[in-house]
Design a protein around this nucleic acid. Structure first.
Lengths: 336, 336
DNA sequence: GTTGATCTTGTGATCGCTAACAATGGGCCG
DNA sequence: CGGCCCATTGTTAGCGATCACAAGATCAAC
């Protein structure tokens, strides 16, 4: 008897123990219908006894498909992407898939292409790209066909499967809320304009203003960071006519809040502010921030559904899902 | 000639094109030394021409090791874990590994065990568990041997490879800073006490107080959330004697700030506050928050190094690395 | 009791790669 | 010039699963 450092049991080991062929074990594992109940139980018992665990690599080799889904996202501690990723992993786990992340430092074409490459190397079953900027879409142009792909927050004009938050609707919600409070117009501190998210919010903001017949003030550009919100606030605080600001995200809103506070403009008495994202801390800003909440878990679930549909061949991969955000009213808005 | 839907090229295809055997292709791919330079070039050219991409599943099957590293983390949009994950993926990518995430809703034994199982199913080459609570460690007890494992922020007493931030040192830094500003003592709003991070910060805080001969006030427990900081602040603000508070993280500090502001206690004139984490927005709190910055990317790199050492067999897996945090001075501390 | 259909199980080939070993050829030494 | 060593390349055998096909068992119907 040679006792070697026990390698983990393979299908044949289970088969031998259960007194059947390896193929029957395979059938049990894959819930094949034509297996006698008694046999099935015997095999199950053998599996449990040995602590057998199917070798995914072997399966992937023969089927050509792994149980891995790749997610490409920006290397990001931004609240939005982080929430998306978490929600997505949760949903994927329920469906029996693992999620491999490929975060990229910047969302330029090269970085994205690199991350996609790394995933294709792993023979992922499908790919989710959180691609909020145009350059990311470019990188997807030369994706090999046949790889299930879903874009999140990508170019709404692309012919790919896509899940997005309805940015424009959210922006409209915010703008209308401020207008309804009696403000003559609403200023907007935007995100980086090459992000679709930012662009959509700008569109919605402008549309709401125009629909209400309000003047459209110049756009104040930002870059999602609290710092850029602060800078914008430093400027806006000097203009007495500014009484309502819609910030493209909550962090920028935080910067705004601080700038206004520094310059003695009270929120909401002097200036009303609305943000976007509903980060967990938003309720504890000074004052508590009224904001727009995108349903990240709905986005994640929708994205996974679309992807699984493609993986299983049910779908051709051109559906799109748009998730409507909601307004969360807190204390940063007051009548003009 | 049968022209079938072109399957992706395999090693033999490359071999045929280059006029060598598949084994030689394999050698080139794995940087084997004994290959003539000219041959190597021919093979490389063939690889490029076909757009060949090695099949990881096949390789994993024969070597028994994948190029996948599993990370188990809390389903978390908490800044700390999110940063860690991002930094970790970056480091892993550089080393040619992909990262599969398994986020868990709660850090109880069952959830962790489940996530670990899912990863073992994928035959990961190694596992990183961000396990800041005792229950997580329990789950690791019955890990099969032989799987390289590194714990991040886990139980310092465990005999496993471990990377932690020196929580106590950070807490001491904060406490000393407040003491040095002339405060008689420092109150502490802690994180959940079953988290090692929180426990370590409590230890450091208490030690610093005792070393300075200062009175140790009762501990105010929190749960990392801004809400818990707010609640704590509501209480502390009623006590005139409270002039210095060390919050276990920045979000709790934010809650404190808001509670103090509501109750008319000015920060830093009436009360000084220090946080922990240095979240990107901390500079834009009102006032800008003095805080402790743990070097997340250093943690991630150290963790990966430890893991790779185990994977390559260089290490036995009992090393530990402790990362020292630094104090970031801003505007939430003033003399008593 | 045979026939044919259906259920159940087994056999062998195969996926794409690496490990182990064998074979070839050139250079160097005595 | 024969022999030995080393560099280089090829051959063969798996890794552990699925797939395609075949074979035996079972059962209903005639």
């Amino acid at each position: 008897m040679d006792v070697r450092p026990t390698r983990s049991p393979a299908m044949t080991d289970v088969a031998r123990l259960a007194g059947v062929s390896h193929q029957t074990v395979s059938r049990v594992l894959n819930d094949h219908p034509n297996v006698r109940e008694q046999t099935r139980l015997r095999v199950r018992a053998a599996i449990a006894e040995l602590g057998y665990r199917p070798n995914r690599a072997a399966r992937a080799l023969v089927t050509g498909r792994s149980q891995l889904i790749g997610v490409v996202a920006q290397n990001s501690t931004l609240y939005g992407p982080a929430s998306l990723l978490a929600a997505f992993e949760q949903a994927a786990a329920e469906a029996g898939f693992a999620v491999s992340v490929g975060s990229v430092g910047r969302l330029d074409r090269e970085s994205i292409a690199g991350a996609v490459e790394r995933h294709l190397d792993q023979r992922v079953a499908g790919l989710v790209v959180i691609a909020p900027v145009a350059s990311a879409d470019d990188a997807l142009e030369d994706m090999p066909d046949g790889v299930p792909l879903v874009t999140v927050d990508g170019d709404p004009a692309r012919p790919h499967a896509l899940v997005t938050v309805d940015q424009a609707a959210g922006a409209k919600l915010a703008t209308d809320r401020l207008l309804a409070a009696g403000h003559r117009t609403v200023w907007h501190v935007s995100g980086p304009v090459d992000w679709y998210d930012a662009a959509g919010r700008i569109v919605g903001w402008r549309a709401a203003l125009e629909a209400a017949g309000a003047e459209v003030p110049p756009l104040v550009p930002g870059d999602w960071s609290a710092a850029s919100g602060y800078d914008a606030g430093q400027m806006l605080a000097r203009m007495p006519e500014v009484t309502a600001v819609f910030a493209a995200n909550d962090h920028q809103a935080l910067g705004l809040l601080r700038a206004f506070s520094e310059r003695g403009r009270r929120v909401p008495q002097d200036v009303s502010v609305i943000g976007f994202d509903d980060v967990p801390e938003a309720a504890f800003f000074i004052p508590p921030l009224t904001t727009i909440r995108p349903a990240f878990d709905a986005v994640a679930h929708a994205g996974l559904d679309l992807l699984l549909a493609q993986i299983t061949g049910v779908s051709t991969g051109s559906e799109r899902v748009v998730i409507a955000p909601v307004l969360v009213d807190r204390a940063s808005v007051a009548p003009a």
